[in-house]
Nucleic acid binder design. Sequence first.
DNA 1: GACTGTGTTGCCGAAGGCGCAACGTCTGCC
DNA 2: GGCAGACGTTGCGCCTTCGGCAACACAGTC
Lengths: 258, 258
Amino acid sequence: MSNAADSTAGGVQSVDRAITILDVLARLGEVGVTELAAELDVHKSTAFRLVNTLEGRGLVEQTGERGKYRLGVGLLRLAGATTARLDVVQEARPICKSLAASTGETVNIAVLSESSALYLDQVAGSSTLQPHNWVGQHIPLHATSNGKVLLSGLAVERLDEVLHRLPAYTALTITKRSALRRELDVVREQGYAVAVDELEVGLTAVAAPIHNAHGDVIASLSVSGPTFRLGQDKLSEVIPELRQAAEEISHRLGWGHR
Amino acid sequence: MSNAADSTAGGVQSVDRAITILDVLARLGEVGVTELAAELDVHKSTAFRLVNTLEGRGLVEQTGERGKYRLGVGLLRLAGATTARLDVVQEARPICKSLAASTGETVNIAVLSESSALYLDQVAGSSTLQPHNWVGQHIPLHATSNGKVLLSGLAVERLDEVLHRLPAYTALTITKRSALRRELDVVREQGYAVAVDELEVGLTAVAAPIHNAHGDVIASLSVSGPTFRLGQDKLSEVIPELRQAAEEISHRLGWGHR
DNA sequence: GACTGTGTTGCCGAAGGCGCAACGTCTGCC
DNA sequence: GGCAGACGTTGCGCCTTCGGCAACACAGTC
């Protein structure tokens, strides 16, 4: 995911540029026409007409009468339609909600996508302030509980295809392949993965696998929150709930019926 | 300009068509190039190049090597960036102000916080006497219109986790669980909740739910004032406005599929 | 007032998008 | 098995339409 300032790969130029505008807005938040034009390396008027078209369709909205531009809610509609066809998310949502309610922490669902974990859905805990919205983000596999769970479902020989480098994000990040392999054995054995301060200091997460009818690990369910709230005692209380929730989702997807 | 059959007012033609493709995919799920071309009323090759560009950017993905097309996960990333900046209070504020202006009464927004309703925002009505500033206050769920709306969005089995005792504040406070449950059914059915003299004698409030993109009840919008001003006739005038305002806010948050 | 910044619009040349038609492939039907 | 029709895909070349230029309207700032 390099920045998409200019990608000659696309076919239709103006569409490609329009999508780049969406990307820029996603990255920078609120951006004016002039700045957009600079990012796209096109004339102001070009950028304006593109963003104006996007606005007419609700993918972008303008702050005030002559203000800057930002992403619009039309995208939410499209994204809703995207997840609607993913039956994992559909089946899991009510269970995620009750898990988020009973633990009070944020619940996520992630799948394997290329070489990272892609977060498909998120339900905030009871805390009114939502710490971060991971949905749509690609997150490193080796530094997250979700990633470890997803990796643990892979055949050992496929690991090398998916894992490239193992950069350290904190002092606790697992950076050695051998250590990661041992960790994955533990995950497989105990049926869940934990990550404390491995991606970000102060962030703790625990995840459990979601299986399909064939028993493959197709997704990962996680509970995450600040490390100070998710201590050992709280974790030992959360983990059984998490595992049960993950099993329930797996059941709904046909696992264990055979 | 060939035709204006579609909803087309945008500027850049190909971008507009590309967005129409996204809309079609959102509506129909999986669609082939030929069908897309028919929907857009363009040639197959045109539809192909557009959808191909979208695919190159991850907004659309293809099933199999030569299969149909559907919405892609790239949209989730964009939508994630959208929700990150979406704040209920901020989105609602202009609507609240106009609602307060047209009704002349106080407008509030509340969310569920642990076992009570937490008031996030308040816009005073035109009346000079402002009864109370509720912002930041935790208010009992069973004795307020906002509380009832928030409860009505909860799964039935979660009610008991949230509701503990049901103390009486006035003679009209609902104190029986069974009665409250029936009241919540009514709220769900009619789409709004009323509370007359239930928290405080002389205080009447009516509330309607605010939904997010997934359809969950994430907040509650209310109009409240002295009972002598909010009689039956005034209420029947306020309620449609209130519901419309709540729906408008929900729309801004991405609610309203299809 | 001038000056600089912003977002917005008319104009016209030409880049680029689009329709055409042909291709490769797959499925189903005789 | 072969044929017919469906599909998605691609090279070609006309002409639509996009986009650069420059002027405009408006808002701050000195």
